[in-house]
Design a protein around this nucleic acid. Structure first.
Lengths: 224, 224
DNA sequence: TCAATTTTTTATCAACTATTCACACATAAA
DNA sequence: TTTATGTGTGAATAGTTGATAAAAAATTGA
């Protein structure tokens, strides 16, 4: 899933430059041009914050102090100051990195990536991404198409889970039925067909392509 | 608890300098003077590694590549190289920071501290803010909505704690019951349902939105 | 092209699950 | 003990989902 970055700087030029760079590199970007705005936007819990220190009214260090208790994500300071004591100060208020202006944008990008990589390593992964747009989170039992949540009922999600975790593999209707209803269930496997229909309907409603393919005379499979 | 740092550099002077500095600052220090030794010591799972890039035989990048899969701790590169591409390379092989020689030892210390702080933060959270208005303080076992304290009884808070610390993740009623009442408890997991109802009632009374969602046929989850 | 077969759609109703409520019991404070 | 508060139970109600059958559409093979 796309990472969300909050960029805070009072110079619109820099904000614009960074926004373009990160959007091109497939991040979702929020921006703020002063401390107060930054605090408001930070409450949306972005995945990472790039924070300029020199700003009128409330400076970056101040902002960091105020949000640190609630906002656990990495905070990278951006600054023209070169005094060593400033840097150390930056780390002390809870910052995670400190980059001097003028900076290389590629280095900034690499540092951002390194911090996010570390965050992800620290949590268990339960999500799988299919073809760029579809994300299935098995722990959350949630399906997202282009970051939009698509609701699936219990049995519907169960089927999606079974098929998507074995993408490409063909399941005949009896196998799906037995897998989810249990062997001794008496019912007819035509229920499966009905659920597949409902699943497809929801994908259409969400504007998505279809991920479940019919294998004529056999059953269904998750596209590969 | 004392953190263990592994310092790797082929220049004994630098190793000595860093070792003294970090030992004075209450770290436990391991050292290595070449790549092979570094890999051996890294297997002891230090809390952080400072790794020189320019070394004979096996350079720091090489070392990092080899250990990255097994050693999850932060790795800080230390180097005289100033080429931007080298830096980015350092991040790509799995490094977490990149410091140029000559470096300020206090800045290095601050960066080390920042990385370790982050590792720890990822383990225990004491307070979390949800969507701007709701604050849960796990140490205090308190819940605040718009700075107003909402009282929750023991079991109620236990449930809130379990769900909110794993926001987005779906828990079925048995899992909640076993998690909070214990496996051998005989009771019915329908108590959980009753507590959820009471929690919701208190959120309504406080004028708050609901944070616990029902997942039909499965259980409950904290909103994401 | 047509008939046989398989899949998809539609509509309906039964079965299931969650919520609510009233009350009983347990525990801690006064 | 009395009182208040927290916790657990079961039954009634409301709401959602799942199963079924029958009709429509699509696919296949001759």
């Amino acid at each position: 899933m796309q990472n969300i970055i909050l960029i805070v700087d009072d110079e619109p030029d820099i904000v614009g430059l960074l926004q373009d760079y990160f959007e091109i590199n497939d991040y979702q970007v929020m921006t703020a041009e002063n401390g107060e705005e930054a605090i408001n936007k930070a409450e949306k819990q972005p995945d990472l914050i790039i924070l300029d220190i020199n700003m009128p009214d409330m400076d970056g260090l101040e902002v960091c102090k105020k949000i640190r208790d609630f906002i656990p994500c990495p905070i990278l300071f951006l600054t023209a100051k070169v005094e060593e004591s400033d840097k150390i100060n930056g780390f002390q208020v809870g910052g995670d990195d400190y980059i001097e202006k003028p900076f290389s944008i590629d280095e900034l990008g690499a540092r951002v990536e390194a911090h996010l990589r570390r965050e992800n390593r620290n949590q268990v992964k339960t999500k799988t991404k299919f073809d760029g747009n579809l994300v299935i989170d098995y722990m959350e039992r949630g399906v997202y198409y282009c970051d939009e949540f698509i609701f699936f009922a219990k049995k519907e999600f169960d089927i999606i889970e079974l098929l998507s975790m074995n993408r490409g593999q063909v399941f005949d209707k009896e196998r799906i039925y037995e897998g989810l209803w249990g062997w001794e269930s008496e019912g007819d496997s035509s229920v499966v067909v009905e659920h597949i229909r409902r699943i497809r309907g929801k994908f259409i409603a969400a504007g998505s392509r279809q991920y479940i393919e019919t294998v004529w005379g056999v059953g269904y499979k998750w596209v590969k």
